[in-house]
């Protein structure tokens, strides 16, 4: 190795040093530590004891709340992610047509997504108030039944799904950027061939946008499995565990009941679930995602 090469090697590792230290201290170390802790019983105050697979066995066989929390997070994901993507795409398509006033519209649709989760949660708790909330006032006015929303076992989770649609702005902006990256000549060629709007959407817009849709799908799933704030602030997991999101249950195990080993086992299962869903999506993406250099 020459002098110059050695200098560059040294410089490379020196510059990357903050992150290299960070990965050891805040990622690699904790990942290994967390894996080991998941096989122990540890309350943070006394030394951990090794209990083998007991945490995982309890989770799977004897803990109905674990299964409940998986169900809650899965149902939430199943609805909020595709609905959010569909609404965001619809709005993005409409706001990409050069209508007058579209920049004001874009701002309006985007604005809610920059607010903090706690503020959004409090505001919507008031909006979903069974008696005086905006939504039920409207529902009663048009003669529809007004459910108890956050106080109803049946309606609390749908309420949180509806609320999540208020925050589609970020996804919408991503789609808008994607739409602007589609070369206009594709549409011109299609128009000459006599294609209508629907055909152009199906055969040009969707395939050209598919990598972006795929990205937001993956990020959406990962994000929605980690929902915490809304459930903590608005319903505290209730009523009757109807909104016991996975990470809320993990938080309670770790910080309310000091079951650090159990919480770590939960975290590892979350990791595995997210990993599997991501892998399945990558596999499925072959059939619908098109990567095109033109885009």
């Amino acid at each position: 190795m020459g002098r110059a090469e050695r200098r560059e090697l040294l410089a490379g590792y020196l510059f990357a040093m903050p992150w290299l230290i960070g990965i050891v201290l805040f990622t690699a170390g904790p990942v290994i530590f967390s894996f080991i802790i998941s096989f122990t019983d540890w309350d943070l105050l006394n030394p951990p004891h090794w209990i083998g697979w007991a945490n995982y066995a309890t989770l799977v066989h004897e803990d109905p709340l674990f299964w409940k929390s998986i169900r809650v997070s899965a149902i939430y994901t199943l609805f909020s992610v595709p609905l959010g993507m569909a609404f965001a795409l619809a709005v993005a398509l409409a706001l990409n047509m050069n209508l007058p006033g579209q920049s004001v519209m874009r701002t309006i649709y985007y604005l809610p997504s920059i607010l903090s989760g706690v503020a959004v949660a409090l505001l919507w708790q008031w909006i979903f108030n069974a008696e005086f909330g905006l939504i039920n006032v409207l529902l009663r006015k048009i003669g529809l039944p007004a459910p108890g929303w956050l106080t109803s076992e049946q309606w609390a989770l749908p309420a949180l799904i509806i609320m999540s649609l208020w925050g589609i702005g970020g996804t919408m902006i991503i789609y808008l950027a994607g739409l602007q990256g589609i070369p206009p000549h594709l549409y011109e060629a299609a128009r000459i061939d006599g294609a209508n709007l629907l055909q152009m959407f199906r055969n040009i817009t969707l395939p050209m946008l598919s990598p972006v849709l795929f990205f937001t799908l993956i990020m959406g799933i990962i994000g929605s499995f980690q929902v915490f704030t809304q459930a903590y602030v608005m319903t505290n997991g209730g009523p009757a565990h109807a909104t016991l999101f996975f990470v809320l249950y993990l938080y309670r195990n770790a910080f309310e009941w000091l079951k650090m080993g159990y919480a770590s086992a939960l975290a590892w299962l979350l990791f595995i679930i997210i990993l599997l869903l991501t892998l399945i999506n990558f596999y499925m993406s072959r059939y619908w995602v098109h990567y095109d250099d033109a885009g």
Binding site: W19, I23, L25, V31, A263, A267, L270, F271
Partner: peptide, 25 residues
Amino acid sequence: VFYILLATMIIPAPVTLVPIFAIMR
């Protein structure tokens, strides 16, 4: 180094939560 960096992006935050909390404590 770059591949390790990419790989760490898929680790959800709750996995490192307990150890980091223990270290901070």
